[in-house]
Amino acid sequence: MEKAYKTMSTAGAGSIVLGIIMIVTGVAAGIITIINGARLLKNKNEITF
């Protein structure tokens, strides 16, 4: 019974940490995408064909 409790505690803590890492990575990727999109829109008038 004790072994199962420790395994579940470790797995639960690992899942929480992984979730936090995924949230931070997702937010960072979103911010970078928004910045790049804004730069593209800002500089679109400078393109000549």
Rank of each mutant, 00 (worst) to 15 (best):
M8L: 13
I21C: 13
I35C: 05
V17T: 07
T25C: 10
A11K: 04
A28T: 15
K6M: 04
I47M: 11
I34R: 10
A4T: 10
A29C: 05
A29F: 12
L40S: 06
G12K: 02
A28G: 10
A28Q: 13
I16L: 09
L18A: 14
E2T: 05
A4Y: 10
N45R: 12
S9G: 00
V24G: 03
N45L: 07
E46H: 08
I16M: 05
G26V: 01
L40H: 01
T10D: 09
V17L: 09
M1W: 05
K6C: 00
T25W: 09
Y5H: 09
T10S: 05
N43F: 11
T33Q: 09
T7I: 03
G26S: 02
I35T: 06
G30M: 08
A13M: 07
I23T: 07
K44L: 08
A11Q: 06
G30R: 08
A4P: 02
A13S: 08
K3V: 02
G37Q: 07
S9M: 09
I31E: 09
I21P: 06
K6L: 07
E2L: 12
G19S: 02
E46G: 03
I21A: 15
I16Y: 06
G30P: 06
K3C: 00
T7G: 00
G37K: 07
L18R: 04
I20Y: 08
M8R: 10
E2C: 01
T48H: 14
S15V: 05
G37H: 04
I32M: 03
R39M: 15
F49I: 14
